[in-house]
Amino acid sequence: MKPFTYSRAASVEDAVAAASSGGRFIAGGTNLLDLMKLQIETPSHLIDVNHLELDRIERTPEGGLRIGAMVRNTALAAHPDVRRDYAVLSRALLAGASGQLRNKATTAGNLLQRTRCPYFYDTRMPCNKRKPGSGCGALKGGSRSLAIVGTSDACIAQHPSDMAVAMRVLDAAVDTVAADGTRRSIPIADFHLLPGDTPHIENQLKPGELITSVTLPNPLGGTHVYRKVRDRSSYAFALVSVAAVFDGQGGSRFAFGGIAPKPWRVAAADAAAAAGAGAVAQAALADARPTAQNAFKQQLVASTLTSLFRQKEARP
């Protein structure tokens, strides 16, 4: 962990002003500190944004839900409105990490968490995401857990979040404020970027731009399912996860985790629901480029969808 200075922001304005002169926000810290210890992240200044009163959950005038950026994963999963109206989000959050981590991890931080690719984590190894131009260690190496779709020759890292997959299926928007005070709302579909030739650039945020909240549209109703498949029963990243909402009028939507550099959603997959799990999987993975080690994820996506369809049918 390289030396840094630390300051505690008292307001959003304070925070973005501090960031404009080059600083990183720290919220829960569960991913940033992990990476700082390994010098994968080396901020010279940390701006603590835990005290900005961004920890509220409130209904929007339109009937949606605005989730403060600093709302902890536990609090979000347990919130009565989320449990009732956005159960897929509760389920996704509860499928992630551990109780201890969920007590610290924040809504904004979860969106920004970085890949679990082991070559990204070992600083002696080539990794274009960590060190642009150094090559991808994973492409011809240990890639079992990595992405199969949305990848590039430069990077096959997967996005590790569960929460973001549910946010994606719910069409959340990421609300931000920039250093100059400009506020914008970024649809989650656009928020995360595919690696292309620049895998080190992972999202739309500009330097110093702060996430203030995530807004969910009006409740979709219907049946919400989050299905996560992993190598052990708990406290592990997804091999494959699927967030699904079946709205009750024949409409369905699916987002996928564990298989792509960002929460993965394909319109054609939503449209294929009537044709069954296999068709949804095929649409979702139309451009898949797996390695020999992670090709099984293609089948696992289909199997997980089959399981999820069964789960849905088992419920009223």
């Binding site: 630390y6 810290g29 569960t30 500190l33 603590d48 835990n50 007590n103 610290k104």
Partner: peptide
């Protein structure tokens, strides 16, 4: 583990359990 992967460092802060390895004391 010092990386939030094992839980051995669990303490209660304001009554909530957290991994004390993944938080700065100054926070």
């Amino acid at each position: 583990c010092d990386h939030g992967q094992c839980g051995a460092c669990t303490v209660l802060v304001e009554g909530q359990r957290i991994n004390s390895c993944l938080t700065l004391a100054v926070m």
